[in-house]
Simulated scan of single mutants.
Amino acid sequence: MRHDEETQLFKERLEKKLSFQEESFLRHVETDVLIPKMVREKSKVLCAEQVADFTKCCQDCGLLMVVKCRKENAALKECLTKQYHDPALFEECKQEYLKEREEYRRTGIPAKKREQKVPTSM
């Protein structure tokens, strides 16, 4: 193998390695805003029972909900806090975010638009 070919091969491997590192690198806004937002949304789903209990209590009590729904509110807060500080859930959301970001970079179509059905022509 010639020196030029070896140099080219080395450059290609280096570029692939750098692109992989770039793909897994998270910016400040991603780690502190976007991924925690996903964690909060998933936490609400995981704590659906407590959310439903608190909502029902608030609807039943009206203006007295501040006093009468303390137990339900405490249970909801506890569940949400537990989920929000769960490292496994954060990692799951991080991987999901990276997958969505990779798909966006590949296609140029945001996740929201990909979920919409494309109209068919008649």
Rank of each mutant, 00 (worst) to 15 (best):
L64I: 14
A88R: 12
E22P: 10
F10H: 12
E92H: 11
V51S: 01
D32M: 10
L46T: 05
K56G: 02
N73C: 10
Q50I: 08
R70E: 14
E5T: 06
R105G: 03
E92L: 09
Q116K: 14
E91N: 12
A88T: 15
L18R: 15
Q59H: 09
L18H: 11
K117L: 06
E96F: 03
H28L: 15
R13G: 04
E49V: 15
E92Q: 12
H85T: 14
T107W: 01
P36N: 05
Q8D: 15
Y84A: 11
G62K: 04
F25K: 11
K68V: 09
C93H: 04
H3V: 14
C58V: 15
T120E: 10
Y97S: 01
E41M: 04
L89V: 14
L34A: 09
C57V: 04
E91K: 08
E6K: 13
L46W: 01
E15F: 01
A75L: 07
R13W: 02
E72G: 00
E115P: 00
A88E: 15
F10Y: 14
Y104H: 05
K71V: 09
K11N: 13
C69D: 02
K11L: 11
K117F: 11
E41I: 09
K68H: 09
C93G: 00
S19H: 03
F20N: 09
E115I: 08
E41S: 08
C58H: 04
Q50V: 06
C69F: 01
E23N: 06
E15M: 04
R2C: 10
V29T: 12
K113Y: 11
Q83H: 08
E78Y: 05
E30W: 06
K82P: 00
Y104A: 01
P36E: 02
T31K: 10
K17F: 01
T7A: 13
E15S: 04
T120M: 06
F90W: 12
Q8V: 09
E72F: 00
K44N: 07
R27W: 12
G108Q: 03
E102P: 00
L46K: 03
L64N: 13
D4P: 01
K17I: 08
V45F: 06
E12Y: 00
C57E: 03
R40H: 08
T81Y: 06
F90L: 08
E103Q: 09
F10M: 15
